[in-house]
Every structure is written in structure tokens, then in C-alpha cells.
Simulated assay, not measured.
Amino acid sequence: MGAAQKIGHAAYQGPSVVKEIMIGITLGLMAGGLWKMHHWNNQKRSREFYNMLDKGLISVVVEDE
């Protein structure tokens, strides 16, 4: 067996289940975090809108000219 065969055999070890699980968990947490930030941003915008509406700063009624 030559040196090239030993190097070729050592290069491929197959999938690492633990590594793939950790990558999956990491990607899932990142995607979940982005979704949660999006949700919080929508909540903030809605809360600001209704606060302005309650204070009379804005109106949803179209004024006639």
C-alpha cells in the first residue's frame, strides 16, 4: 500500500452525527432568533400606533376637505 492510498483513505471519514446535530441546533436557534426579533418589531410598531391613536396624534378617519 502506497502513501497516496493512506492519504486518500484518511481524508474521508463519513458524516459526523454529533457535528450535524450541533450545526442543525445552531441554525435552528439562529432562525428562531431572527423570527422572534421580527415578531418583537411588529409588536413594537403596533403598540406605537395604538399609543399615538389614543393620544390623538393620528387618526384613521379621512378628513373631508
Rank of each mutant, 00 (worst) to 15 (best):
M1I: 13
G2C: 09
G2P: 09
G2M: 02
A4S: 12
A4V: 14
A4E: 15
K6C: 07
G8Y: 13
Y12G: 02
Q13K: 14
P15G: 02
P15Y: 05
P15F: 10
S16Y: 01
K19L: 11
K19D: 06
E20D: 12
I25H: 09
T26N: 11
G28E: 09
G28A: 07
A31D: 08
A31I: 14
A31S: 10
G32W: 14
G33D: 08
G33R: 10
G33W: 04
L34K: 14
L34Q: 13
L34G: 13
K36M: 15
K36Q: 14
M37V: 08
M37E: 06
H38A: 10
H39G: 03
N42P: 00
K44A: 11
K44E: 06
R45S: 02
S46W: 03
R47T: 04
E48F: 00
E48M: 04
E48G: 00
F49S: 02
F49I: 03
Y50H: 08
Y50I: 01
M52D: 15
L53H: 02
D54H: 11
D54A: 11
D54N: 09
K55D: 02
G56P: 02
L57M: 12
V60G: 04
V61F: 00
V62C: 05
V62L: 10
E63H: 07
E63D: 07
E63W: 01
D64A: 02
E65G: 03
